[in-house]
Simulated scan of single mutants.
Amino acid sequence: MTSPRLPTQWPLAGLRLTTPRLELRLPGPDELSALASLAAEGVHDPAVQPFTVPWTDAEPGQRARDVLQYHWRCWGEWQPQNWVLNLVVLYEGAVVGMQGVSARDFAVCREVSTGSWLGLRHHGRGMGTEMRTAVLHLAFAGLGARHALSGALHHNAASLAVSRKLGYRDDGIEHHAVRGEPALMHRLRLTAEQWQYQEHIPVKLDGLTECLPLFGLDRV
């Protein structure tokens, strides 16, 4: 439960992104605990590692603790010139996953990157597209971004499909080592112009104005 004073002291606590099915917001202690438990249950088929940082290979208890520490670390290290916003995703009031958006020198570069995961039992319901749409709306319509970047390993068909559906275009490749084996990552880029000329589900933003200084902005 959020303290009534917290949104004043830390405006991000009052930020809300709402889509037809989902709500995205900074997690409170109970929601962060639920997110950690969801990660412990499983995020993907354990036979295939979709992340370049294989955090999901840890045993369930460690995986849960890693989720907690990652969120705490991002909050503690937040700077307007270098920020990572991790939002818990709720469906019908229940935590189903996490959607992140991050940037360095955003006020100058106007470029963001996104990353996300859903609990394994929530896959295949179109939530990945809806939650990415929410943070892209935040980035482009709310913060005035000019570019959004994403990336997925070649075998991560679900993530690549979300990016293609939302209009991203190829932006090169990277080579990574995952589980001791070479892995090819596809980089993708979406411009504000490409985003503007597509139809999207409606997204409502609440509490953004108070947060702008934390993103390095005095206005959009």
Rank of each mutant, 00 (worst) to 15 (best):
V43F: 04
G128P: 00
P46G: 11
R73K: 12
R73W: 11
A103R: 04
M185A: 15
A107D: 13
D170S: 14
L12E: 01
D105Y: 09
F106E: 04
L138F: 07
L17H: 00
F51T: 13
L6T: 14
A103F: 09
P80C: 13
L87A: 02
Q81W: 08
L17E: 07
P60F: 10
E41M: 09
A39C: 14
A39I: 11
G97A: 01
G76Q: 14
D45W: 03
V135N: 08
H44W: 10
E174M: 09
L90C: 15
E130A: 00
L166C: 02
N156M: 01
H123D: 04
R132F: 02
P213C: 11
E210G: 00
A40S: 08
M131D: 01
G97P: 02
H44I: 03
S113F: 06
G128W: 01
A107Y: 12
P7N: 05
G128I: 07
Y168G: 05
Q196A: 14
S37P: 09
W117K: 05
R132T: 06
G61P: 05
Q198H: 13
P213N: 14
H155V: 02
S102N: 14
H44G: 00
L90W: 06
Q194D: 15
L184H: 08
V162N: 06
R25S: 15
L188G: 04
T209G: 12
P202W: 01
R169N: 10
E181P: 03
L87K: 01
